[in-house]
Write a protein that binds this DNA or RNA. Structure first.
Lengths: 333, 333
DNA sequence: AACAATTATGAAAGCGCTTGCAACAGTCAC
DNA sequence: GTGACTGTTGCAAGCGCTTTCATAATTGTT
């Protein structure tokens, strides 16, 4: 295949193997239906010509594109990156191509990217950030395409959701810190629906267990290291110094720890800190950061399972798939 | 468009607007060739039907897919993430869909992903990691597709390269540290071609300026925070303590600073540190990290320019586009 | 007023696959 | 030997667009 000459077509492979194009197509997409001997001849012809199927043509003819759109808020400093990587890997291994779009926080961009995905006739749209706009949710619901929401577990999924209960995660963290004897938690809450929900779960449980209402600071998403530093400084504005800071992401936790130490406040002796997302860095930080782990690989696997069932024409009964979350206790709290 | 009913086709829009399908196609792809009044009617019909073109069909018919493959090593802890984001944004805004594949360090995966991209008949393949395998480079060279290498600036690009000279970046850092009065640099060098080249540039300049040969530690890619911590501990094995550690990435620099501070070694008073990549975190760290900035947005813009020229059938004369790099002097060195 | 040049549109032939249908050759049970 | 299957293959009709070529309508030129 040189820069000038055209790529070989199915027809050429067929001629070389002495069969019809239809049979070659069957061999490629469904090898078990062609006779073993024929298959061998076809494979030889494929190898000889260096044939690579034109999947655009295939998609058009079969109305199955094997193209999956993943819409994520960002990748520069995302807490989802491990999950995104796992998803891309699994999808690729399962014979799909992955289109990646960055939505930021802008609903109009999201809409444009949904349209772009639909124009490619993707088999599925994977959402990592949460779609809050009701109209967009309705539109997605009406689409002839599989929509998988990940990380969250909304009451009314657009189609299928694979994630965990954020309020349960908050609840678990409240119990954990309570049992460790902390008494004055301070929450640093990114202004995203899911973070808010975790905070809600935390506060509810905390007060049910007899604690005082925690103080809190809201920060903008995407959350990042720098916010942690600023958040530490803001602690001085509180009526009393907290004994533990519950951060909405590991980045914030890391920034906060760095700033605390620079200010001579020892972590966790003087101030405990927890993060969220269990990034690799959390285990490497000094002190290591207590965090909440989400099994991104598991989310990816469940996603493949759902996609396969859909492709096989089965009806999905379980529309909310809970993969849970786990507190990873380390040195920082 | 409900879950059951088919998407509207060009033909339907055409009928509604009272023109032929050809004219609608022209309006969509090349609006200036259709009469203004006709265009208005067509747009109304598009809006009414909610028509979204089937780009797979379009790609097949025009043999231009407007699909771009970007192959990156990873996204979880990548120093390229800002560049990748900028590229995805620019490509999307320019009417393309972006396929993202993760190559890891495995050449076989890379080959599989190149084939996947070719099967989609992508208009271009964007490489972020460097392709070292000679056979793969030759294969890519022979392909009827635009190949853009980014970040690096190889002597013999596969097709077009947009990046900067890593050895020049190393050279500049050597001058910078020398002029600041440092005398015993220690290099932490990820085992990637480009990092090695930076180290090479550094050492050459350093010794030319009369310095002693720097000590060095090789670490595996992808580099990450944890390596920085370990690298600090390894400093005790050196014959003499360095006065500055030149790290192959900001992650390593950050990890090293954290570990140094935990050990009571003040940065930069006792030990200076530099990073690479100028991640947002570098400016937020305490102390802020002296780093090398690469203008990812610029790389993305140049990429679009090249792609456009290719699409217009022009011959690209400038096959190595140097966007340079800049030392960002901060507190850590 | 006649002609050339320009602009706007339509008809129709693909682009390279997939797949329903039909045909044919074997296999098997009786 | 016959009929009913089963397994394997080919034929041909699309999938929904783009684009060449031809034609019609308009404008400009002399």
């Amino acid at each position: 295949m040189s820069r000038t000459q055209r790529a070989p077509r199915l027809e050429e492979v067929a001629t070389l193997a002495g069969v019809s194009a239809a049979t070659v197509s069957r061999y490629i997409n469904n090898p078990e239906v062609v006779a073993a001997a024929t298959g061998l001849r076809i494979q030889a012809a494929i190898d000889e010509t260096g044939y690579l199927p034109n999947l655009n043509a295939g998609a058009l003819a079969s109305s199955r594109s094997r193209l999956i759109a993943t819409l994520v808020p960002d990748i520069a400093q995302s807490i989802f990156n491990d999950t995104i990587e796992a998803m891309i890997d699994e999808l690729s291994n399962d014979g799909n191509s992955v289109m990646l779009s960055l939505t930021g926080a802008d609903n109009n961009r999201l809409i444009a990217q949904i349209n772009a995905a639909l124009s490619r006739r993707v088999d599925a749209i994977i959402l990592t950030g949460i779609v809050t706009d009701a109209e967009t949710r309705d539109r997605l619901r009406s689409l002839p395409v599989t929509v998988i929401e990940t990380w969250g577990l909304p009451d009314e999924p657009i189609d299928v959701a694979i994630g965990f209960s954020h309020s349960a995660a908050g609840d678990a963290m409240a119990r954990f810190l309570r049992s460790r004897g902390y008494r004055r938690p301070h929450l640093i809450v990114p202004n995203s629906t899911r973070s808010q929900r975790r905070a809600g779960g935390f506060v509810r449980r905390w007060m049910e267990e007899g604690g005082d209402e925690p103080t809190r600071l809201e920060v903008n998403v995407p959350s990042h290291f720098g916010q942690g530093r600023l958040s530490f400084r803001a602690l001085t504005d509180l009526p009393a110094m907290p004994d533990v800071v519950v951060c909405g992401s590991d980045w914030i936790a890391q920034g906060l720890i760095v700033e605390a130490q620079a200010a001579g406040v020892r972590v966790p002796d003087k101030l405990a800190v927890t993060g969220f997302g269990n990034l690799r860095m959390a285990g490497d930080m000094r002190p290591t950061i207590t965090s909440v782990d989400v099994d991104g690989a598991r989310i990816a696997r469940e996603m493949i399972r759902v996609l396969r069932e859909r492709a096989a024409g089965k009806t999905i009964t379980e529309r909310r798939i809970d993969v849970g979350s786990r507190i990873i206790a380390r040195e920082s709290a």
